[in-house]
Simulated assay, not measured.
Amino acid sequence: MRRLPAVLCLLLAATTARAAVSVEDGSGQTVALDKPAARIVSLVPHATELLFAAGAGGKVVATVDYSDHPEAAKRLPRVGGFTGFSLEAVLRQKPDLVVAWQDGGTPRELERLKRLGVPVFVSHPLQPDDVAKEIVLLGKLAGTDAEAARAAAAYRQRLSALRRRYGDKPAVRVFFQLSQAPIFTVSANSYIDSLIRLCGGVNVFAGLSQPAPQVSIAAVAAARPQAIVAGDDATLAMWRRWRELPAVAGGALLALPGDAISIPGPRLADGAEQLCTRLDTARQRLGLTPR
């Protein structure tokens, strides 16, 4: 048998080296693949959106309930939901990569996947820019680096443009309401707080320790927010009788429908734009003058 020329051997070795990929996931663990993933299972809706943004949508073979963006994700098989996933259903998809969530309730099942030799990337976006970082990392794992880089850059540019436009406008004291009964809000440990600041707002509950703390009506009244933001008008209606609140007196009860701001994926830029627009409306209603 003839020996391959040395140059060809070097080229083959370089190609093999490039095929192997390795990244650090949101939990600080190294995820290594012999070659870019061809069959990916996403176990959380925001990861599904990240994968599609990274150009890897065609490689996603299954996901979980509420993975509704983009449209193509609705047609994928489901292997679980918010409370957990079926290990058997995941394994039937023969994945070479599973993308999970740091705060998901299935750590034991994820460890079983790892013991069975299935690589698991744990997603953990804590701040808006983490979305761009994870798009890049998932693109690397899927072999779609170029498209992922473009998507991450476009996302970052949108947030930068919003920061330049709204960040230095007169500050608005904001109460961001996640739910009605009980009342949950966000602290500085939530990425939503970063978006409030990006839009020139001040989160009245930024100082609380939990990312999504529970608060009382009395605490909201004491904080005297100038704007109250919630997902729908029905939630906002509970505050209309509190006429002494600046947000109510100034007509700054602001609905932010949809889930763009509540899912840490690429649509977060859409949610940020909606929030900035709403807070600018509050400035106008409150008669705040530019600095």
Results as ranks from 00 to 15, higher is better:
Lys140Pro: 00
Lys140Cys: 00
Ala142Val: 06
Thr144Gln: 14
Asp145Thr: 13
Asp145Lys: 15
Glu147Cys: 02
Ala148Glu: 06
Ala151Gln: 06
Ala154Leu: 11
Arg158Asp: 05
Arg158Thr: 15
Ser160Gly: 11
Arg164Asn: 13
Arg164Gly: 12
Tyr166Cys: 02
Gly167Asp: 01
Lys169Leu: 12
Lys169Ala: 05
Pro170Asp: 00
Gln177Glu: 15
Leu178Trp: 03
Pro182Trp: 01
Thr185Cys: 15
Asn189Tyr: 08
Arg197Lys: 15
Leu198Asp: 01
Asn203Gly: 13
Asn203His: 13
Val204Cys: 07
Val204Trp: 05
Leu208Ile: 01
Gln210Cys: 04
Pro211Phe: 02
Pro213Cys: 09
Gln214Arg: 10
Ser216Ala: 14
Ile217Phe: 11
Ile217Leu: 15
Val220Lys: 03
Ala222Ser: 15
Ala223Met: 09
Gln226Val: 08
Ile228Phe: 06
Ile228Ser: 05
Val229Gly: 03
Val229Ala: 11
Asp233Asn: 14
Met238Asn: 04
Arg240Leu: 05
Trp242Cys: 02
Ala247Cys: 10
Val248His: 09
Gly251Asp: 10
Leu253His: 09
Leu253Ile: 06
Leu254Ile: 06
Ala260Lys: 07
Ile263Gln: 08
Gly265Ser: 07
Pro266Asp: 14
Ala269Leu: 12
Ala272Ser: 12
Glu273Phe: 02
Glu273Tyr: 01
